[in-house]
Simulated assay, not measured.
Amino acid sequence: MIRNCLILRLWFIVLGCFSCLLAFAQEKIPISIGASYLQGSVLVHSPKIRHLQGVNPVGAEINLQYQTTGTKFWHQLYKYPRIGISLIAFDYQKPILGKSLAASIYLNKYVYHRAQDQISIRVGTGLAYFSNHFDWRLNATNNVISAPLNAVIQFRAEYERILSPKFSLLLAAGINHYSNGGNAKPNLGINIGTLSLGLNYYSQRSFEPLVQAWPPPGNKLSFTISGSAGIKQRDDFDTITYTVKSVALSAMRQLNPKSTLLIGLEGFYDPSLIPRRNWDPRVEPGTSPDIRRVALNFGHELAIGKLGFGTYVGWYAYRPYKSDAAFYQRLETRYPLTRNIYLAAGLKLHDLIKADVIEYRLGFRFWRKKNSPRSTVDSP
């Protein structure tokens, strides 16, 4: 009965995708729908998950993607990539992991293109649901997924062989990463290497790209003030959740329509360090080192339309209680609500792979005023 319900839901999703395809086809908008079979393998990235070695999930994907045509200026900056949404379902064929369903948005960019052959790189992110997760009473050996809802990051290289004006054969290899960013523990995360075989159907393959004039230069220097909050769990045995807070000041310098550099000052307050400090044998008895931190950070933001994708590195200049590495990293997505107000979400890490907390940020951005042009009329 449950299996029939899942098949029925999948059938409705397929019908919905084809309905969208037909609607866009009537409007002469280049769009495609694809379906793929996925063969996966869990990649053992830590000795703590050796018990998952040899787990080979099988899956299926349905995706819908739109070929950008230049209606937005950023389309031509990135050589007219494709934008897509996908649903990926995995059956891990192992009771401790169960099944997962991930919904994501992605960008697909050609790196090689000929009449019959195409190679592209696809990067996407979204949310995933896992049927089975860590439970110290019922599922204690699942130390990779500790909550039903997780973030997913996908990277894939694709090869397409054109079969006809409407159809193409797809071969792909990629990695899917699932993690909750430390909201709940244990959270080692799971990486799945995949090989895909699929078929794509196009409403129309050829299009005439639009070329827009470059926008006039604006204010290249801006300043931001922002605050963030995130929830984390300290370890597997501490069921208390802690709210990590930060406040940041930064200066941003735009290099071109794609790239902006950032340098800033940031302060952190992480209450999960209090119990950790109290039990730390390195701390001298009778002392309580300050858990507050102040850091210098710098990084780069890549603009894709209104979205900004930032990669940053920070150094703790003030850190009396030294519980983690002196450096941290952050991956962040920023979206402006107005010219001066933005929202952002990001993942803070230590040692590049150790997730610390998922942060949600509200910020205010101000531009340096332009100097008024000097008068060309000579003074008497």
Rank of each mutant, 00 (worst) to 15 (best):
N150F: 03
I145R: 03
P81F: 08
I83D: 04
W279K: 14
P275F: 05
N132M: 10
T69S: 13
F366E: 01
N200L: 15
F223M: 02
N187M: 03
Y106A: 03
G218V: 01
I153D: 07
G189V: 02
P281N: 03
R374W: 11
A23E: 08
T239C: 00
D238G: 02
L52Y: 14
V294M: 05
G189I: 02
H113M: 09
G174P: 06
D378Q: 15
Y321W: 07
K245H: 00
R137F: 09
S272Q: 07
G305I: 08
T287K: 05
E266N: 10
P47N: 06
G84P: 04
K306A: 09
I83M: 11
G124Y: 09
G305A: 08
P209D: 05
L273C: 09
N150P: 07
E61R: 14
I353N: 13
Y78T: 08
E160K: 08
I121Q: 13
H113C: 07
T194D: 07
W315S: 10
L307A: 14
N256K: 06
G305K: 13
L255T: 01
P271Y: 01
Q76E: 13
D91I: 07
K109L: 10
S323G: 14
A303H: 15
R339N: 12
P285E: 11
A248M: 08
A295P: 06
Y342N: 09
F130W: 13
Y112F: 15
N150G: 04
L331E: 14
D117M: 11
A251L: 12
G230I: 04
G314R: 08
L77I: 09
V14Y: 12
G181W: 01
S379F: 06
Q204S: 11
I291L: 05
I162H: 06
Y159Q: 02
R282L: 15
H300Y: 15
N180G: 05
Y159D: 04
V247I: 13
P95S: 12
S196I: 02
S246L: 09
L261C: 07
V377N: 10
F12M: 14
Y112D: 05
G54S: 10
K370L: 12
G84F: 05
L170M: 08
V244G: 00
H133S: 10
C17R: 06
P257R: 02
C17T: 12
V55G: 04
S288A: 14
F90Q: 10
I263D: 05
C20K: 00
F268A: 04
H300L: 15
K99T: 13
G40M: 10
F207I: 04
H51D: 11
A248P: 00
I119N: 09
S36G: 02
A173G: 12
L170V: 11
G59Y: 07
N219D: 07
F309N: 03
G16K: 04
A303F: 14
G98L: 04
A89Y: 14
R282T: 12
R334W: 08
N340T: 13
Y80G: 06
W367H: 09
A140W: 06
I85M: 15
F327G: 03
T69G: 09
A229Y: 01
Q39Y: 11
F73T: 08
N371E: 15
L343I: 11
A173Y: 02
K109Y: 03
I145S: 04
S272N: 05
A103M: 12
D356N: 07
A35F: 11
R277Q: 10
F309W: 11
L107M: 11
T287G: 06
L138R: 15
W74L: 06
N132T: 13
Q254G: 12
P215Q: 12
